[in-house]
Structure formats: structure tokens, C-alpha cells
Computed example of a mutant assay.
Amino acid sequence: MFLAGTDTSTIIVEWALAELIKNPTILKQLQSEMDAIIGQERILQEDDVSNLPYLQAVCKEALRLHASTPLSIPHYSFESCEVEGYHIPTDTRLLINIWAIGRDPDIWENPLEFVPERFLPCGKAVNIEPHGTDFEMITFGAGRRICVGKQAGMVFVQYLVGVLVQGFNWQMPKGEEIDLKESPGLVIPKAVSIKAFVTPRLASKAYF
């Protein structure tokens, strides 16, 4: 359980960093938020995350666009039923395509674009949370088969993305671009790992 949770969380962190490096304006806005709330004299703490709405929005957008597990844990029907006009027979194992829901143009405006603002108060998805109660975004699943580590996963992703973005400037090597190709499988990591130059951006005492 811990291995699976660690693997999926680190995949989301890498996707979030890839999207931020590809979109330097979003990266700068996130760094500006943390500079205003935390400053540059200390590193981010877990308690700070609740005061950083743009960091939360960035992580939600990464979860939406790059679901680390494309299919849900199997659900099982004990009796036949109708769901949205589809007949589900008794003794059926159901797999939900989480990846497709996160990119559905009937639900999301410009679904293939990385737009954290959609989760801010001015955005249409401000009330959507990835906790299994909003079916537009079921990154951790839903119902009785929902991921037991969803809360820990969100804390891990938000904290690690925040620390890496606050602590360093990120830049691609000259002449190279971020590759957003996916690697197929039970989880969806990047096909090509990030290669980037990082430079410290905080006061030296913040790193010790």
C-alpha cells in the first residue's frame, strides 16, 4: 500500500513540475504567491499549504490532467442496475476511466490545457475537489473503493511541489523543450524524465 502510494504521488509531482516548467508564467505566479505568504527567509512547511490557494490549484490541475492511475480499482455489481442509460448486469467488474473523465470536453473547458485558475474562486471548477464526492474529478476513486491514502497523497504532492518550486528556479537546457509524452501502463509516468537546470532562489539560511 505504501509503495503504491509513493509511486503515484511522485508521478504527479513530476507531471506538475513538467507543466510548470513548460508554462513559466504559471511558475512565476506560484513563486510570487509563496514569496508573499512565506517570504524567502524560510522554506515551506505543511501548515502553510492551507494559505496558498494557487499552489492547491496547481496540484489539482496536475491531478486532473495527469491522473497517475488511468483506471480505477475494480468495482463489482452484486445486482443488475441502470447507470446513465447503460445496463450493468449482475456480477460485473467495472473499471472507471479516470484519465478520460479528467479530459472530457463536456466537463472541462479547454481540457488539454494546464489552467490552474479553473480551481480558483473566479474559475468554473472552484467547488470541485478530488476526494471522491465530485464525479467530474475522481483521481482517487470514489465510494467504498476510494483510495485510503488520498489525504496523505494530497499532502505529499502539495508539500513537495511547493518546496521544489519555492526553493529553486527551474529552466530547461538551451534548445530543449519539455516532452509531455506518457508511458502506458497501470500507472502513467512521463515517458521522458525531466532534465532541467535548478538554481537556489531563497536566502541561504532557508536551506539549513
Rank of each mutant, 00 (worst) to 15 (best):
H75D: 10
H66W: 08
P53I: 03
E84L: 14
P70M: 10
E61D: 10
C81F: 06
V58E: 08
L71A: 09
Y86P: 03
A62F: 05
V58F: 02
Y86Q: 04
V58W: 00
K60G: 03
N51Q: 15
H75I: 11
V83N: 00
Y54M: 11
L55E: 01
S77H: 11
Y86S: 02
C59W: 00
L63D: 02
I73Y: 06
C81S: 14
C81T: 15
L55R: 04
L55I: 08
A57C: 07
F78D: 10
G85Q: 05
H66T: 01
E79V: 02
S80M: 00
S77L: 07
S50D: 14
Q56S: 14
A62E: 06
S80Y: 02
S72F: 03
L52S: 06
E61G: 10
A67G: 12
E84V: 04
E82P: 01
S50F: 01
L63W: 01
E82Q: 15
H75L: 12
P70L: 09
L55G: 05
F78S: 14
C59S: 10
Y86L: 06
L55D: 03
E61I: 03
H66Q: 07
K60H: 14
Y76K: 11
R64V: 00
V83Y: 01
Y76G: 08
L65K: 14
Q56M: 12
E84P: 00
R64M: 07
G85H: 07
L71E: 04
L71C: 10
A67K: 07
S68P: 15
V58Y: 02
N51W: 04
N51M: 13
Y76L: 13
P70E: 09
V58A: 09
A57G: 09
S50M: 09
S68H: 09
L52I: 10
A62Q: 03
C81K: 04
K60D: 01
R64Q: 08
Y54K: 03
N51F: 10
Y86N: 03
L71F: 15
E61M: 04
P74Y: 11
